[in-house]
Simulated scan of single mutants.
Amino acid sequence: MIIFIDSYTEEKLANSLAGRPGYFKLFYDTENCGCNGVLAIEILDQPLDTDIRISVKNFTFLVDKQQESLFDDALKLEADRSYPSFKVSSDSALYSTNVRIKDARDMASK
């Protein structure tokens, strides 16, 4: 899998990390959803054993092996210039236009 980002998106991702290490996990969140899931991005301290790593410029994205088939081989991640969210798309699909980043680092210790 490949994820393409532009320089503005790269800046927004770096701001989300706030100078700390972390991994961006792209996944369908089904918790309390009652549906097929909502596309989300979480910042994690460490990948899980079932995660696939994807290098994107200075970042590492993660996708669970079980959810990898839900995405096309090449994705485009774009930061919204007027709202704190991202759009995830491919040449053949629009996955979501309102993807938020949730920082889940250090959650196990809280």
Rank of each mutant, 00 (worst) to 15 (best):
Q66Y: 09
S92T: 14
P47Y: 03
F24Q: 06
G22T: 06
I52Y: 00
E68F: 01
D51L: 00
I52D: 00
L94A: 11
D51F: 01
P47N: 02
R100K: 10
L48D: 11
G19C: 05
I101M: 10
D51K: 02
S82M: 07
D45S: 13
S85N: 13
G34T: 12
R81P: 02
Y28G: 10
P84Q: 15
Y28K: 12
S96R: 00
V56N: 00
A79D: 07
D45V: 03
A79L: 10
T30Y: 04
N32T: 12
S16Y: 04
N36A: 08
G19R: 05
Y95Q: 06
Q46F: 14
V56L: 00
Y23H: 05
S90D: 14
I54G: 00
P47C: 01
F27Y: 15
E42T: 13
L17K: 04
F61A: 04
G37K: 10
D80K: 07
N15Y: 13
N58I: 01
C33Y: 14
I43C: 01
I41Y: 14
A14Y: 05
K87M: 05
P47E: 03
G34V: 13
Q67M: 01
C35I: 12
F24E: 03
L75A: 05
N58H: 09
F61P: 08
D45Y: 01
V88F: 10
Q46K: 14
V88S: 09
E78Q: 07
K76D: 11
D29K: 04
R81I: 09
D73Q: 13
K65Y: 01
S85P: 02
P84M: 14
L75H: 04
F61W: 08
F86R: 08
V88M: 15
D91Y: 06
A74C: 07
Y28Q: 09
V63C: 04
F71G: 01
L62F: 01
L48V: 01
D64Y: 02
K87P: 00
N36M: 08
E42H: 14
T97R: 11
A79T: 03
Q66H: 07
D80H: 11
V99H: 11
S85L: 11
Q46A: 13
F59W: 03
L75Q: 05
R81V: 09
Q46P: 00
P47D: 03
Y28D: 10
K57F: 02
L62H: 04
A18D: 12
V38M: 12
V38N: 09
